[in-house]
Simulated assay, not measured.
Amino acid sequence: MATAHEDLHSERGAVRGDRPARAIDPVIKVEDLAWLEFEKPDLDAAERFAHDFGFATAFRDGAELHLRGTLPGSQCVIVRQGRRSRFVGPAFRASDRADLERLARARGTSVRELPGHGAVVRLTDPSGVPVQVVAGTEELPELPRQAPLPLNVGRLRRVNATQRPPRAPARIERLGHVVLETPRFGRTLDWYLENLGMIVSDFLYFPGQRDRGPTMAFVRCDRGTTPADHHTLAMHLGPGRRYVHSAYQVADLDAVAAGGEFLAGRGYKRAWGIGRHIQGSQIFDYWRDPDSVMVEHFADGDMFDNTVEVGWAQMSASGLAQWGPSVTRDFLGAKPSAHVLRDLVTALRDGDNEFDVRRLVGLLKVATR
């Protein structure tokens, strides 16, 4: 196994007694995220932002909007008409229908047919988030891609030619990951490892609380020797059950930057960026859509196969990036609001979760380090 603490992806690896980072005998092993589902009250506004952000429309009627990237595969996002803006849940892709049958038997449910073609198993994780696992779904053809710019780095690749990336939407290539908050971190993480066969790439823990175990996990798909994104799913312990953000790959740093300039010129709000993460190494840029949903452009993320062991690091605001502007209160979700205070009070009163007073103290320390 490749170690996690030799300048690979985290400051140190696991020690004896640490929480396991993978299940011994998972039910199945999903291959990737298929898509994310949202509800929005205004599909026209959702589509306008989506095009400015860099999506293409794959399907649209009066009730649904399907958004895709340039790479072949399924749509990245399904948006349905709803009374308010909200995240519904993720869909993961299994390798075949046999995996769906195995998962359905293990969870005491059934495989259902999807309209058109394909099949799905519908589940709910311990946090209450609806999770779909699909197979045999429609494969959308490739669209023209935004080519990375040729760089005069290492060797001469550009002579008698200038660099003038257009200030235009960064063309989304694919869905990369989704990040969720849950007050039932351990049980929810175990559910994904045991049922979907996912692997933890990195654990983070609150300052001074390594002894109580991790409070954030960056989780990847187990594709064997085929590399997968450093994280397809990330989750962290917090007082609420909520969507944090989702991330979409673009061609390169210039696509991130020029696409960001285009979004700023259209009046959208940057949440944080541009910078480079530590866990996952992505070049990132975070934005808010008109309903304040946070989405990320990223490029140049880490890819791990199943030989890389888990890394451990202390969770801190300063540890979220190698370079770039200081993390914002907006990104950290540190702005007080009625629903945040309600979630906090509910979590502290609920004995059936992991968010207690000591965890609250640890979370507050994260923002100051």
Rank of each mutant, 00 (worst) to 15 (best):
A2H: 06
A2C: 04
E11S: 09
V15L: 15
P26W: 05
V30A: 15
E31P: 00
E39C: 12
D44K: 04
R48D: 12
H51I: 04
F53L: 02
F53T: 01
A56D: 13
A56F: 05
A56G: 13
F59C: 07
R60V: 11
R60H: 15
L67P: 03
L71T: 10
P72G: 04
F87A: 11
P90M: 07
F92A: 05
R102D: 05
E113S: 15
A119S: 11
A119Q: 11
V120I: 15
V120M: 11
L123Y: 05
T124Y: 00
P126I: 08
A135I: 09
G136V: 05
P141K: 11
L143P: 01
R145T: 04
Q146D: 03
Q146T: 01
V153R: 13
P169I: 00
A170T: 00
V178C: 09
V178P: 07
R184L: 02
F185C: 08
L196R: 00
S201N: 11
Q209I: 02
Q209A: 14
Q209P: 08
D211F: 07
G213W: 13
M216S: 14
D222I: 07
R223I: 01
R223A: 07
A228D: 06
T232W: 02
L233A: 11
L237I: 04
R241N: 07
Y243M: 08
S246A: 14
A247Y: 05
V250E: 00
V256A: 08
A257R: 03
E261F: 00
G265R: 01
G267A: 04
Y268N: 10
K269W: 00
A271R: 09
I278M: 05
G280H: 07
F284T: 04
F284W: 10
P290F: 10
V293Y: 01
V295K: 01
E296I: 09
H297M: 07
F298M: 12
M303R: 10
V308H: 10
Q314M: 15
S316G: 12
S318K: 15
G324T: 03
S326K: 12
L332C: 07
L332K: 02
A334P: 00
K335L: 14
A338V: 15
A347R: 05
R349I: 03
E354M: 02
F355L: 09
R358V: 14
R358L: 13
V361A: 15
A367M: 05
